[in-house]
Amino acid sequence: MITETSSHYDHLEQMSVHDLLTNINKEDKTVPFAVEKAIPQIEALVVQIVKRMKEGGRLIYIGAGTSGRLGVVDASECPPTYGVPHDLVIGLMAGGDGAIRKAVEFAEDDAEQAWKDIEPYHPDEHDTVIGIAASGRTPYVIGGLNKARAAGLLTGCVVCNPGSAVAQAAEFPVEVVVGPEFVTGSTRMKAGTAQKLVLNMISTSVMIQLGRIKGNKMVDMQLTNIKLQDRAAKMVMSEIGVNREEAEELLAKYSNVRGAIDGYNQSR
Results as ranks from 00 to 15, higher is better:
residue 4 E to Y: 01
residue 4 E to H: 11
residue 5 T to M: 10
residue 6 S to Q: 15
residue 6 S to G: 04
residue 9 Y to E: 09
residue 10 D to I: 14
residue 10 D to G: 03
residue 16 S to F: 09
residue 17 V to Q: 03
residue 19 D to Q: 13
residue 21 L to W: 00
residue 21 L to H: 05
residue 24 I to P: 05
residue 26 K to S: 10
residue 26 K to R: 09
residue 29 K to D: 06
residue 31 V to K: 00
residue 33 F to V: 15
residue 33 F to G: 11
residue 36 E to G: 01
residue 40 P to D: 00
residue 41 Q to G: 00
residue 42 I to G: 00
residue 44 A to Y: 04
residue 44 A to F: 03
residue 47 V to C: 13
residue 48 Q to T: 08
residue 50 V to Q: 07
residue 52 R to P: 10
residue 53 M to R: 02
residue 54 K to M: 10
residue 54 K to G: 01
residue 56 G to E: 11
residue 56 G to S: 12
residue 58 R to S: 08
residue 59 L to S: 04
residue 59 L to F: 04
residue 61 Y to C: 02
residue 61 Y to K: 10
residue 62 I to P: 05
residue 64 A to N: 11
residue 66 T to G: 03
residue 68 G to E: 06
residue 68 G to H: 12
residue 71 G to I: 13
residue 71 G to P: 08
residue 74 D to M: 09
residue 74 D to N: 09
residue 75 A to G: 07
residue 76 S to Y: 10
residue 79 P to C: 00
residue 80 P to T: 14
residue 83 G to R: 10
residue 83 G to L: 14
residue 83 G to Y: 11
residue 84 V to T: 14
residue 85 P to R: 09
residue 85 P to F: 06
residue 87 D to Y: 06
residue 91 G to R: 13
residue 93 M to R: 06
residue 93 M to D: 01
residue 97 D to I: 15
residue 97 D to P: 13
residue 98 G to T: 12
residue 98 G to Y: 04
residue 100 I to Q: 02
residue 101 R to E: 11
residue 102 K to T: 15
residue 102 K to S: 14
residue 102 K to V: 15
residue 102 K to Y: 05
residue 103 A to F: 14
residue 104 V to T: 14
residue 105 E to I: 12
residue 106 F to L: 10
residue 108 E to T: 04
residue 109 D to K: 05
residue 111 A to I: 00
residue 116 K to S: 15
residue 118 I to H: 00
residue 121 Y to D: 12
residue 121 Y to S: 12
residue 122 H to F: 13
residue 124 D to W: 01
residue 125 E to A: 15
residue 129 V to W: 07
residue 129 V to E: 08
residue 134 A to F: 04
residue 134 A to R: 12
residue 138 T to R: 00
residue 140 Y to D: 05
residue 141 V to N: 05
residue 141 V to A: 05
residue 145 L to H: 04
residue 151 A to Q: 07
residue 151 A to L: 06
residue 157 C to I: 06
residue 159 V to R: 03
residue 159 V to P: 08
residue 159 V to A: 07
residue 160 C to I: 11
residue 160 C to W: 03
residue 163 G to R: 10
residue 167 A to S: 11
residue 170 A to Y: 00
residue 175 E to N: 12
residue 179 G to S: 02
residue 180 P to V: 11
residue 180 P to M: 04
residue 187 T to N: 05
residue 187 T to Q: 03
residue 188 R to E: 14
residue 189 M to W: 07
residue 191 A to Q: 02
residue 191 A to Y: 02
residue 193 T to Y: 08
residue 196 K to C: 07
residue 197 L to D: 04
residue 198 V to C: 06
residue 202 I to K: 07
residue 207 M to Y: 10
residue 207 M to A: 08
residue 207 M to K: 08
residue 208 I to T: 02
residue 209 Q to I: 12
residue 209 Q to S: 15
residue 212 R to D: 06
residue 220 D to I: 12
residue 221 M to L: 05
residue 222 Q to D: 08
residue 226 I to T: 14
residue 226 I to E: 15
residue 227 K to A: 05
residue 229 Q to K: 15
residue 232 A to Q: 07
residue 234 K to L: 14
residue 234 K to M: 13
residue 235 M to A: 02
residue 238 S to L: 15
residue 239 E to T: 13
residue 242 V to P: 04
residue 242 V to I: 14
residue 244 R to F: 03
residue 248 E to L: 12
residue 250 L to D: 10
residue 251 L to C: 01
residue 251 L to W: 01
residue 252 A to H: 11
residue 253 K to Y: 01
residue 256 N to I: 06
residue 258 R to T: 14
residue 261 I to P: 00
residue 261 I to T: 02
residue 263 G to Q: 12
residue 268 R to M: 09
residue 268 R to V: 13
